[in-house]
């Protein structure tokens, strides 16, 4: 082999590497291509005209915003590894999202293939989100949050108290266990007919139902968590000089923490369900009520806007919940990640 040949042979891979490197540097290539397709179709194809018109081209603005984020992301967050990491490996996912939006836009806005009443165009949903933003967030979401958080924390507190009592006291177990076994499995929403008349306000009734749906799993998991703590831990702590109360709070409860969090998590999921049902059936405000109200008026763009807000807020709550849990349970090995 001559020197020239060797040079040529070496050039091929080097070139390939350069191209590959360039492609890799341009993070999110597939996502950007999908986004470009979506943008092109949105700009070039005329709307079918069947969907009610919107004041502004919100979907277009949204896509431009996305494009800005995707193109500027590497430059903007060059220095922050945590933010750079947020995009890494998510290329296919974002590409799929933009393909979905493209198809949705074609089926609703551009060709109106789907029934227009039930399937509003992305433009319309976004326009509701933007134009009703204050009302949706401050009034509806604010009211839901107040109800949910009040119910959740009182239910969690009650669950912890009864769970700990059952775990540590025989008489408490004797009297509370049947109560939990009989009342627990009843879906909280089944109480709605009674609660709506028995409570002074629908708000307090709904709050009670949410608390009830959190109380049951929290209580069950707390007590079983405590009862499953190896007795050796209590024995060791007593030979180290720990008295009863100290053992309850600094041995029993920490040891039961993983199960307590499982209970709180089931409780949180149940509380979302109860919140929505309570708002749709009785409470006269909140995001669930808003969705139901808009559904009755056949304003499905508003219904979807409400659903998007619910999805984002519940996702944030659950993410926050797992952040807290991971903090508290750092000591566990092989923890299940959310």
């Amino acid at each position: 082999m001559t020197a020239e040949n060797a040079d040529l042979a070496a050039e091929g891979p080097v070139l390939n590497k350069a191209i590959l490197g360039g492609l890799k540097a341009l993070s999110g290539v597939k996502a950007i291509l999908a986004l470009a397709l979506c943008l092109t179709l949105e700009i070039t194809l005329p709307p079918s005209g069947v969907q009610p018109p919107v004041d502004r081209q919100y979907f277009l603005y949204f896509l431009i915003l996305c494009a800005a984020v995707f193109l500027l992301w590497p430059a903007l967050f060059f220095k922050k590894p945590s933010l750079r990491q947020a995009m890494k490996g998510k290329d296919d996912f974002y590409a799929a999202v933009f393909i979905f939006l493209t198809v949705l836009n074609l089926l609703t806005d551009k060709f109106a293939v789907l029934p227009v009443i039930f399937f509003p165009s992305p433009d319309r949903v976004l326009s509701v989100l933007v134009e009703d933003f204050t009302y949706l967030i401050v009034v509806c979401l604010g009211s839901s949050a107040k109800l949910l958080l009040t119910g959740f924390f009182s239910g969690a507190l009650a669950g912890l108290v009864t769970g700990i009592a059952i775990g540590f006291s025989k008489p408490a177990a004797y009297w509370l266990n049947p109560l939990i076994k009989i009342l627990g499995p009843i879906p909280p929403t089944a109480w709605i007919p009674i609660v709506l008349v028995a409570f002074p306000t629908t708000w307090s009734g709904a709050c009670f139902l949410i608390a009830l749906s959190v109380w049951f799993p929290t209580s069950v998991m707390t007590s079983s968590g405590i009862l499953n703590v190896q007795n050796a831990y209590f024995e060791v702590s007593s030979t180290l000089g720990a008295k009863r109360l100290y053992q309850i709070f600094l041995v029993g409860i920490p040891a039961a923490m993983p199960l307590i969090f499982t209970g709180l998590f089931s409780g949180a999921c149940a509380s979302f369900l109860t919140l929505m049902t309570a708002e749709m059936v009785g409470v006269k405000n909140g995001i669930g009520w808003y969705i139901n109200w808009q559904r009755e008026m056949l304003s499905y763009a508003n219904v979807y806007a409400g659903l998007i807000i619910i999805a984002i807020s519940f996702y944030s709550l659950i993410t926050l919940f797992f952040k807290v849990r991971d903090r508290v349970l750092v000591w566990q090995k092989g923890m299940i990640k959310w």
Partner: peptide
């Protein structure tokens, strides 16, 4: 049980959360 009489088992039983 009392702190004046310490006990160590075959299993160390360290509190895993501490």
């Amino acid at each position: 049980p009392d702190a004046e009489r310490g006990l160590v088992f075959q299993n160390p039983y360290l509190f895993p959360w501490l």
